[in-house]
Write a protein that binds this DNA or RNA. Structure first.
Lengths: 346, 346
DNA sequence: CTGAAAGCGCTTACAG
DNA sequence: CTGAAAGCGCTTACAG
């Protein structure tokens, strides 16, 4: 709809006040569902708003109220499937509640700056969602002391609100599946080898946690992971390919490979195919994520409901902003999805 | 860094003015690289800014100047690989130029509203990027008349700035590849069957354009596409699976399938594998996009540089905002990537 | 329940 | 080159 007078630009609160025969204060109250407004007055205001096609200028209301109705999301990579799903979940909840979402990528070096709230977010957000911040408990305590409410996604930190899966358990689930099939010689393709160095605290990283659960289960079966059977795949398809090539070139290759992400598993499957082998028969591969494409390549994997993590994180943050207390940690469950890339050892 | 006086909240322009011994007008000018500021004064201001760790409140400057330094992006789906790449490209350019990016999803029904600028974007953006708006020339003319500068991504419209591939050519490239391999009986899995109805003008949709190039090439080889060989795959993996199942169940199945997106091709490959067939030997499959996972499944495809489309679109829009004229259409090139899912007919 | 008025923190003609 | 001052369009105590 065009405004009543297209030449004068968008209608302002003054236009509405004049049209409804009330003060701007009343218009503002009526629109924000302030309790003390007479029903008749509210109706008159609403009618005027409708007639003039009025929408409040968000910059003006933000400046006046100090509330931005915007939340910021900071993630190391924006283009991965994982981040995409997370963003989708967060966005869903934000738009349901009329919140804007401001997205930024934060390379690890930016982490320090982050604790004092990124300049890009300065006075623009009411709260922040941090993805894979990998800050450890020390950093988390700094985050908790920030004036901006924060929730962390992807890892479980005691000092700050968070939503994540249980990564130790995920690693264990993968190992147990392979063990049950009868595998005794199992390799792992992990990622984020460079992360250890950057950690602020001594807490295990997400890949380390998965490794731990995995090794625990192996140990219970009396198996020790050989160091030559642990490779870094950089959490990329290409990395998975290279690592798998190395593993399958061993004089005595493993019968199964656990990839810490589905994308690395895709690379593994590619290598296996290119070598004329069949996954699930000659070599077993299990991934982690349940990426959109996993089903179509028949990949057995540990499914994490990433979008749900995003939703939960956003709801948690909005809850805090609405005046709730720090709500602690929200766990999201994991499922083993068995498809065709795992089978009994050759 | 903490502010000098943490109790008083973030520093304002008044604090800086006082600290530097100048007026707020001068601070503002110095910070925005206004020409008429003495070098010595500018230095003094910058030093004060640094000392107080000042960052301008964006809401205040937006309100005062009417410039938001924000661009809006509207896409039908936010979670697809395609949109993800596009957003990444746009975001890259935006952050380079200090622009915020506001993202919204626009279901087809919202298209009408869109022409009068979405309420979510009201007074929040300087310009908009519209993805797959499918509005045709009539709608495009409406867009061009908007007070908000707009660039359209994914289709070529005469009336409004745009960046896209040549979809007709893409369809032709796919057909020619299959024809050269010797295929004569080729099926197509298209998507967006419901789109036709919703179109405002009579212009062919993106899938129609690809179909046209494809059929043109077939016609030149003396081949007519049978109607039973055209299926809708909804641009999803599952849709590709279902459609391929139907095609391979025909008494006389095609020897090759052109999928209008890689995701549908992934579904096709799944079906082929599940039927115990081998893609590239028993049936050829060619996709469209060069999705991140395409290489690892050996998919032959028509590569479009989606991220580059996003970058180009953003640069174009920023150019218009900087005072450039409507810059017309920006074509992005296409490449045939031959991998293992296509081969000579069985 | 409602209004007059101050204030949010900037930008930008207008003078000088 | 610089400053005083108005104004951007809201919100919110403060009175009534």
């Amino acid at each position: 709809m065009a405004d009543t007078d297209p030449l004068s630009g968008p209608a302002t609160i003054d236009d509405v006040a004049r049209e409804a025969g009330v003060s701007t204060a009343t218009v503002s109250r009526a629109l924000r569902n302030h309790p003390y407004v007479a029903d008749a007055t509210r109706d008159r205001v609403l009618a005027a708003v409708d007639r003039l096609n009025y929408v409040a200028n968000p910059n003006a209301s933000r400046l006046a109220s100090g509330i931005t109705r915007t939340i910021g999301l900071l993630a190391p990579v924006l283009t991965s499937w994982y981040t995409g799903e997370l963003v989708a979940g967060v966005e869903e909840v934000c738009s349901e509640h009329g919140y804007d979402l401001l997205i930024g990528s934060a390379d690890p070096e930016a982490r320090e700056r982050l604790f004092h709230t990124d300049a890009r977010f300065h006075q623009r957000i009411d709260g922040a969602i941090l993805v894979d911040v990998m800050c450890g408990e020390v950093g988390a305590r700094q985050l908790a002391e920030l004036d901006t409410p924060v929730v962390v996604l992807g890892e479980h930190l005691a000092a700050v609100a968070s939503a994540s899966i249980d990564n130790v358990k995920g690693g264990r689930m993968a190992a147990e599946h392979l063990l049950e099939l009868g595998h005794r010689r199992i390799a792992v393709i992990k990622g984020g080898a460079h992360l250890e160095v950057e950690r602020i605290s001594g807490l295990p990283t997400v890949p380390d946690q998965r490794m731990q659960g995995f090794c625990d289960a192996l140990a219970e079966a009396g198996i020790t992971l050989r160091s030559a059977d642990t490779r870094d795949g950089d959490f990329t398809i290409r990395g998975g390919r290279v690592a798998t090539n190395a593993l399958l070139s061993l004089a005595h290759p493993p019968t199964a490979v656990f990839c810490l992400s589905d994308e690395m598993a895709f690379g593994a499957l590619q290598t296996i195919r290119e070598r004329g082998l069949v996954a699930g028969r000659d070599v077993s591969v299990i991934g982690f994520d349940d990426h959109t494409v996993a089903e179509s390549v028949g990949l057995t994997t540990i499914r994490q409901r990433v979008r749900e993590i995003g939703r939960l994180g956003a709801r948690t943050l909005l809850g805090v902003l609405a005046g709730g207390a720090n709500p602690g940690h929200h766990p999201v469950d994991l499922t083993l999805v068995v498809r065709s890339t795992t089978g009994t050892p050759a």
